[in-house]
Design a protein around this nucleic acid. Sequence first.
DNA 1: ATGCCAGGCACAGCCTGA
Length: 307
Amino acid sequence: MKIATFNVNGIGSRLGSLLEWLSRESPDIVCLQELKAPQEAFPAQALNDAGYGALWHGQRSWNGVAILARGARPIEIRRGLPGEPDGEQSRYLEAAVEGIVVGCLYLPNGNPQPGPKFDYKLEWFEHLIRHAHGLYTSGHPVVLAGDYNVVPTDFDIYNPKSWRKDALLQPQSRAAYQRLLAQGWTDALRAKHPDEALYTFWDYFRNHWQRNAGLRIDHLLLNDELRPRLIDANVDTWVRGQPHASDHAPVWIELSTRRSSKPAKRAARRDKTPQAERRDIGGHRSEIQSEIQSAQAQRLATSRPEA
DNA sequence: ATGCCAGGCACAGCCTGA
């Protein structure tokens, strides 16, 4: 199973490029950011024709996030973070797909810094960290994927000198990202490529793409329930080289279909005792579904109707 | 230190992104 995150920088102007990438790479689950489209302008029909069910959280002109699932409809868990300072910015969407909880996020850029936009970035980060802790310890397999607008270390950028004052490299931004990781999350791309310079964003200026002058700011974080299933991770850099491309490239992880298990657990599964059955993915999946459905029922009972 | 490019909005030239 392949899960990807892609900041499309305008779904309206990027639809052709997005469809070509979906067709060539066939990701099973996709997190999109920067739709830059109001709710009613999302190309749900075109994506459905391409075989993808979708949930989306749009906004006029700016921001906007979506979750796609190949041959399935993502089950919505929530839109927006609990206690998010400004409910008008569409930056978070969470859904269950194939027994996995998928959080799709577009963290504020924060430039210029210092200033109110940087304050907003750090404030949003705190809400994310608080919510992520609950997800991490939920017992479900969870991936938090998106554009974090943080270059984690100087190894994650072609040259930190000219970006030193940028919000993406600030010590406060990096410290917040490290506090998130410290909950136990695995940065999947870095885990699979500890010594390789990898980038996910190349701005449109100064031939940065042609010079591979990039930044690594799009991340997929896995909790302990999902981490053992990680097989591979990489960046579909070819997408960035296409005509009329987004300034980001898709980042993806490949997961084993079943939860990987230790030999002792595999032996237990062969031995069809009731306890072994409970460890089986099927049983685990139905537990997730029932918990999600009850969470949804509670939320629907207490929240106002969606806009 | 700034603009370099690009999308959205709306149709000239801002604002925002990162």
